[in-house]
Nucleic acid binder design. Structure first.
Length: 646
RNA sequence: GCUGAAGUAGCUCAGUGGUAGAGCAGCGGUUUCGUAAACCGCAGGUCGUGGGUUCAACUCCCACCUUCAGCUCCA
């Protein structure tokens, strides 16, 4: 029998008989490893443990701790769930059932039957039963015609549709127990590996993600090798719900969403406004240092302006309908600030000496989001962008892109937020979604990528995510429920300068087109604050905390001293409150703790006599006594430096 | 927009066709208190909205609104 050479992750090489399986290699290393192995990676591809290896290969055993291992685990779990569904609901048809970041889903067509929570319970029980049988997942390869025949007999049009794309190819199937599925694999060795399972939710999902197609029912679930891990995961889910900005926003009195004003139109309460204005002040400072000029533009504009920009009628459906005047004029609630800023740019001739011109505005825009899309502060119909447009000569472009990325990164660093950077390119297969000439697009995409490489950004590229006038560098952040949102953005635009005929006079005395950078480090204040609330779980750093200090006299007797402490802090600019309620100090502490106020100052006899305050920090408890003045100096410093931790 | 679920006091939640309840918060009083809940009392509701069935509807039926989860969309 011929031999093959296997290279292990540590670089070691070893010869094996041809057709050896991953499982056999694992068993050769140790029994424990063989037991833990879920799949193997062969030449960078994830394979079943039982699949014979026919040639020299790099080789890695995948366990639960490996992404590839989890992937096989959850994908196999989806098949197990499908088997349970088919057992309980004969005739069920299946769409796709992949693993996802955490867990898996399967899209189902059960005819008229709508799945309920009780159904999920039943399916879960059946899955447990099937897993306990511990039957193997078996791979089988069929000719395309035989595969089609199989699903024709079964009457599953979804799988037939999927097969259309693989015409003429060999098709792999997987069986476990009585269930057979069209599947590329890989899978676990057997169902018994799946120990703890939970079906989380059922929701509609369009077949193949197209809203013109039939809506299927999608069950989301998650499985783990032990009950303990499942319980921990479910506990974390509950914890995450406690961070939900919609819940904290009401509890901490930050903002209000009420149908009386309108869906997706948040009202900022006094405490939330403090956070919002602190953020604005922070960014204004940074922008002033970087040569930005502030401008202000109105909330509506002549419809013609948006015809020039191209936003109308292409985005007609996502705008509030125009306001029609009797004289035939029409106005649009502004969906974006750019066209206004372009008018400011072009109100007078510009020289190359003036460039770059950086126009900044906290501009509120209105977009008609679909009704099912609204989500707390993260998806709204009226929001304020920390918008700016940089008009520059082409030879200034890269430096300006760098500077805007640097500013955006400073923003996220200031809050300690974890961002993923996405280069959003256009989809060349769908060019009618985008304006401008192909050449401009290639140039702009190349340029942002070059800058990203030069400053060694860790990015990924996403096709089809560009805006209609140019590619973007997007700063993506996750919310408490693990959903990804775009916050900051930097966009390069060659299209609008053409549409608006923007010019400057160059050193050569000739007219030139500037390039525009659109950028918004926060993205929108609403979305940013929504994420920020969840990021800090409502426990804001001192400089953002709506109430920074609460003074708690132990009883009425010390009210006068408490007022002195309170007034002094207030005069120095600290956001401080005094709790003069007729309550015991334990009650007051509990109350201010639940309000997540960073500092409490307990004052009684001892403090009054010594000119002291007893400092109690949120969640950290009693920090001992200090001189009043000392506390004041310290807290002002923490606020000024915008420190994250104290 | 689509599929499904939900909506009872400011908040969290009970209430399966027969007079709407609790805890917390709020208000009034008593207590003057040392690091996460003192005590007593009072008030608080068009049961999301509008129709219908019924002697009688928070409860059953229909429509709409809003919220939630997911899908689609996101300049």
């Amino acid at each position: 029998m011929s031999k093959i050479k296997i290279t292990f992750p540590d670089g070691n090489q070893k010869e094996f008989d041809r057709d050896i399986t991953g499982k056999q290699i694992a068993e050769g290393i140790s029994k424990g490893l063989a037991k833990e192995a879920l799949a193997v990676e062969v030449n960078g591809e994830v394979w079943d443990l039982s699949r014979p290896i026919r040639q020299d290969a790099t080789f890695k055993i995948l366990k639960w701790s490996d992404d590839g291992g989890k992937d096989a685990y959850w994908h196999s779990s989806a098949h197990l769930m499908a088997e349970a569904v088919e057992t309980l609901y004969p005739g069920a048809k299946f769409g796709i059932g992949p693993s996802i970041e955490t867990g898996f889903y399967y899209d189902l067509d059960l005819g008229d039957h709508n799945l309920t929570k009780d159904d999920l319970q039943k399916i879960e029980e059946k899955m447990n039963e099937l897993a306990n049988r511990d039957v193997p997942y078996v791979r089988e390869e069929k000719k395309w015609e035989d595969a089609v025949e199989y699903f024709k007999a079964k009457g599953d049009q979804y799988k037939l549709e999927l097969l259309d794309e693989f015409k003429g190819q060999t098709i792999s199937f997987y069986h476990q127990g009585n269930f057979t599925d069209l599947c590329r694999g890989p899978h676990l060795p057997s169902t018994g590996k799946i120990k703890a399972m939970k079906l989380l939710s059922v929701a509609g999902a369009y077949w193949r993600g197209n809203e013109k197609n039939k809506m299927m029912q999608r069950i989301y679930g998650v499985t783990f090798p032990t009950k303990k891990e499942l319980d921990e995961y479910l506990f974390r889910l509950e914890e995450a719900k406690r961070r939900d900005h919609r819940k904290l926003g009401a509890e901490l009195e930050l903002f209000l969403l009420t149908p009386k004003v309108g869906s997706g139109l948040p009202l900022w309460l006094p405490k939330g406004t403090i956070i919002r204005e602190s953020l604005i002040e922070f960014l204004r400072d940074e922008q002033r240092k970087r040569g930005y000029q502030s401008v202000v533009t109105p909330h509506i504009a002549n419809l013609e302006l948006y015809k020039t920009s191209g936003h109308y009628p292409y985005y007609k459906d996502s705008q509030f309908p125009p306001i029609q005047l009797e004289n035939g004029e029409a106005f649009l609630l502004k969906p974006m600030n750019c066209p206004h800023h372009h008018q400011i740019y072009s109100f007078k001739p510009r020289s190359y000496r003036d460039l770059p011109i950086r126009l900044a505005e906290f501009g509120t825009v209105y977009r008609y989001e679909q009704s099912g899309e609204m989500n707390g502060l993260t998806r709204v119909r009226g929001f304020t962008q920390d918008d700016a447009h940089i008009y520059c000569a082409h030879d200034q472009l890269k430096a300006e892109i760098k500077a805007t990325i640097e500013l955006t990164q400073l923003v996220f660093k200031t809050f300690g937020m974890d961002v993923k950077i996405r280069l959003s390119y256009r989809d060349d297969k769908n060019t009618e979604k985008y304006g401008g000439e192909a050449g401009f697009w290639e140039q702009a995409q190349r340029e942002i990528r070059e800058v990203a490489d030069e400053i060694k950004l860790d990015y990924f590229i996403a096709l089809g995510e560009a805006s209609f006038y140019g590619p973007k560098i997007d700063f993506m952040v996750k919310d408490a429920l693990n959903r990804t949102w775009q916050l900051g953005t930097v966009q390069v635009d060659y299209v609008m300068p053409e549409r608006f005929q923007l010019e400057y006079i160059g050193q050569d005395g000739q007219r030139h087109r500037p390039v525009i950078i659109h950028r918004a480090p926060f993205g929108s204040l609403e979305r940013f604050i929504g994420i920020l609330i969840e990021h800090f779980a409502g426990e804001f750093p001192l400089w953002l905390a709506p109430i920074q200090v609460a003074v708690l006299p132990i009883s009425d007797v010390f009210m006068e001293y408490a007022r002195e402490v309170y007034e002094a802090l207030k005069d120095s600019g600290v956001r401080v409150e005094i709790d003069d309620r007729n309550e015991k100090v334990g009650y007051k502490i509990r109350d201010w703790e639940t309000k997540k106020v960073p500092f409490m100052l307990v004052v009684g006899e001892k403090e009054k006599v010594g000119g002291l305050v007893s400092v109690r920090q949120h969640k950290k408890g009693d920090q001992g006594t200090v001189k009043r003045e000392e506390f004041q100096t310290r807290i002002l410093d923490i606020i000024k430096t915008r420190a994250l931790t104290v």
